[in-house]
Computed example of a mutant assay.
Amino acid sequence: MTTTPDPLPHDDYITAVADALTDYGVKPGMYWTEDNEDGHLIGLFRDWPAGTVDTDTWTDAPPFLIWNQYDGWRLIEEGGGRNIRDLDPEGVGVYSSPRQVACSMANALRGHLVTGPICQTPWDSRPLEAAIKAWEAQQRAREDVAGALLCAADVVETHPRPIPPGPKTGGFWWDEADLRAVATLLRWLASESAAPPAS
């Protein structure tokens, strides 16, 4: 499994789905997690075992299985027109159990696009959903701090004149070079604030 350097809240969920896919005989050759600039947490699976993909159904190429916390589970055909369809809408929701996702995917690869709900042990998605909500709130807070620092940088850089000495300026004259340096520092702090913390 390949992930971004810092753990993401859906890592364990995606790993559990990969394990369940293996149990259903369709172990993915590759899968990984990531987050994108739009705040989507993504899980992607590809490269299915030989003989598990029905070429009458998937005429262009075997599909990717992709997940995010807004669109749920979807199938994207590799190549061709890159057709996108939801994975088994009658059985699979955004936070469905790994076993449900894997069963529906194994059937979809073999040409049976509708599986519906399966009998299984109870699955509680609430811890996963709570972890994702917390991650999203943390991302918004970082963006708010970064935005405030960028505004401060703009104010400092566009100040109409040097700032004379005084108790609030450290007792020295701030000329244009000083103001540019402070603005640069504020922009650097903004970029650091927006980035995930180092693990």
Rank of each mutant, 00 (worst) to 15 (best):
E176H: 06
R126N: 07
D11R: 06
L21P: 01
P167W: 02
F172N: 09
A20C: 03
A16S: 12
L87Y: 05
V156H: 00
R99I: 04
L75S: 08
D35I: 10
D38W: 09
W135D: 06
Y31D: 04
R142I: 11
G29F: 06
N36G: 11
A108I: 02
A181I: 03
R187G: 00
W73K: 09
L149M: 02
V92T: 15
P28E: 15
T121S: 09
Y24F: 14
T115C: 00
R126M: 12
S199Q: 14
G93T: 15
T2Y: 12
W48N: 05
A102T: 09
P196F: 05
P127T: 01
I76Y: 12
F172K: 11
N107K: 04
P160W: 15
P62L: 04
P63G: 14
W32E: 01
C119W: 06
L189M: 12
D71S: 12
H40D: 15
T57M: 08
P89I: 11
D11M: 10
D35R: 12
W58A: 07
R110V: 01
D60E: 05
W123R: 03
A20K: 09
W123D: 14
W32A: 01
L109G: 09
V17W: 13
R140S: 10
P127F: 13
D35E: 15
F172G: 04
P49A: 08
L8A: 02
E34A: 14
A148T: 11
F172L: 11
D56L: 04
N107G: 01
A137H: 07
V17A: 08
F64A: 01
G171T: 15
I66F: 00
N83E: 10
D144N: 06
I84Y: 03
I42M: 08
R140N: 06
A153W: 00
W123H: 14
Y95V: 10
Q138R: 05
D71G: 12
A146D: 01
L109V: 14
C119E: 07
T4D: 10
G72A: 04
V17M: 13
D19M: 09
M105T: 11
E37P: 02
G39F: 15
R82W: 15
D71P: 03
A148N: 07
W58Y: 11
Y13G: 08
G111H: 06
D144M: 04
S96N: 09
G91C: 08
E78R: 10
P122D: 10
P197N: 07
R140I: 04
L8D: 07
N83K: 09
P9E: 03
V26Q: 08
D11E: 14
W135L: 03
C151L: 09
G79A: 06
L44P: 01
T2H: 13
K133V: 01
A102L: 10
A141T: 13
L109N: 08
P117W: 15
D175I: 10
A108C: 06
A198Q: 15
I66P: 00
E37N: 10
V101E: 08
N83A: 11
L41G: 02
P7T: 11
T184E: 00
L109D: 08
D178S: 07
T55M: 04
G80H: 07
